[in-house]
Design a protein around this nucleic acid. Structure first.
Lengths: 204, 204
DNA sequence: TACCCTATATACCGAACGGTATGAATAGGC
DNA sequence: GCCTATTCATACCGTTCGGTATATAGGGTA
């Protein structure tokens, strides 16, 4: 009995749906409705599978959310990591803001940011969800702060402006952007927000 | 039968709880948990009354939320209207940011902003809630924009900076502030956010 | 063909949801 | 004292929640 064969030959009845497609459907529902607002009924409907299939493939609702959040960060927040490659702190900020804007202007995706939505939605049951999102956000914040530390060392910031303060400021704008996008702001308005933020970006 | 007497002499059995205190309790629950996350059980527990009393006095959950939102705006967002009296746009922004900061630093109130929480929480049932919050926010935005229009007419803004763009920018920062406050940011961090925002505020 | 393993579909679980019917308690008006 | 009007407390309504038991269907292996 060769163990390696199990990769190409799964034993029992094969599943009739695509894992990735189903997960993408789950992501859409969580994105539209938040963790608590997403019911198993709506999830299964959008994923095109039944509840037992969902539980067998993904565990439970919380585990499914984690996997959907992974997909979200991998596919929708990719611009956040790539933005760090920009040559200056201002260019990083510009890439981040324009990336966030472009994502919110997508006509096929739900509005707002899944991370922001999930960190705000807050009944008692969703406490571990908030904690998980907070952990991931802290990681993003640390990455941006490290990049801004380099910028500060390179003398890009005015005196008295600390990198962590500027990081926090930039995140606040992006969070505000996603709030306003989720509340029905137009693309023009969101673009104005980005342009204004860039026009006041501090230079030495 | 004098109609006016009904004001001082309500006929039936008098209620045994204080309307304002009960509403304040409801506000706390909505603030902590959002509209959907606030269950009738938790509401009645915090308000110190039973469900039939709640329905008799406030209508239903949605009507109770509206009244709690009224109380919230009246007591907790008072700084937003008074800030408009400041002499310059920058002073208005400073009052708004410091007012928001001070509110988030209160140790007895929940963290975050009820309006932001309610505009994000989003199952299907909460759609009218979102609409109501959006309407009220639009009113606040209009008030701030009018004030910034005056500032622009007074020549306070750099060329090319429109008042509505700056209004949207300032709101974004305040929304980001409340998001970060609700996610466990420290007072020091929130203060840094406010100071940074003020330090980059555009002047002519 | 017989067997094993896994996915499927249906029907169901206890708990919690928002909301209410009902009857006892408590006040004013006559 | 009696009627009316309103509140209070309990128990209950139908629905939906997340999650599962059960039985059938379908593919690999021998």
């Amino acid at each position: 009995m060769n163990r390696l064969c199990t990769l190409t030959a799964p034993k029992g009845r094969p599943r009739e749906f695509d894992l990735d497609e189903a997960l993408a459907g789950a992501l859409r529902v969580f994105w539209r409705n938040g963790y608590e607002g997403a019911s198993m009924a709506e999830l299964t409907a959008e994923m095109g599978i039944t509840k037992p299939s969902l539980y067998a493939a993904f565990g439970n609702k919380e585990a499914l959310f984690h996997k959907a959040l992974d997909l979200y960060e991998r596919e929708k927040l990719a611009y956040m990591t790539s933005a760090l490659d920009a040559p200056t702190a201002r260019a990083v900020a510009e890439r981040l803001l324009r990336g966030a804007l472009q994502m919110q202007m997508s006509t096929c995706d739900p509005k707002g940011c899944l991370s922001v939505i999930s960190s705000v939605a807050c009944s008692a049951e969703a406490e571990p969800i908030k904690a998980e999102v907070a952990k991931r956000r802290a990681s993003s914040e640390a990455a941006l702060m490290k990049r801004f530390d380099e910028a500060k060392a390179a003398g890009e910031f005015p005196d008295g402006l600390e990198s962590h303060a500027l990081m926090r400021y930039l995140f606040a704008i992006m969070q505000g952007l996603s709030i306003q996008a989720g509340s029905g702001a137009t693309c023009t308005e969101l673009n104005q927000l980005v342009e204004t933020s860039l026009s006041v970006w501090p230079t030495k």
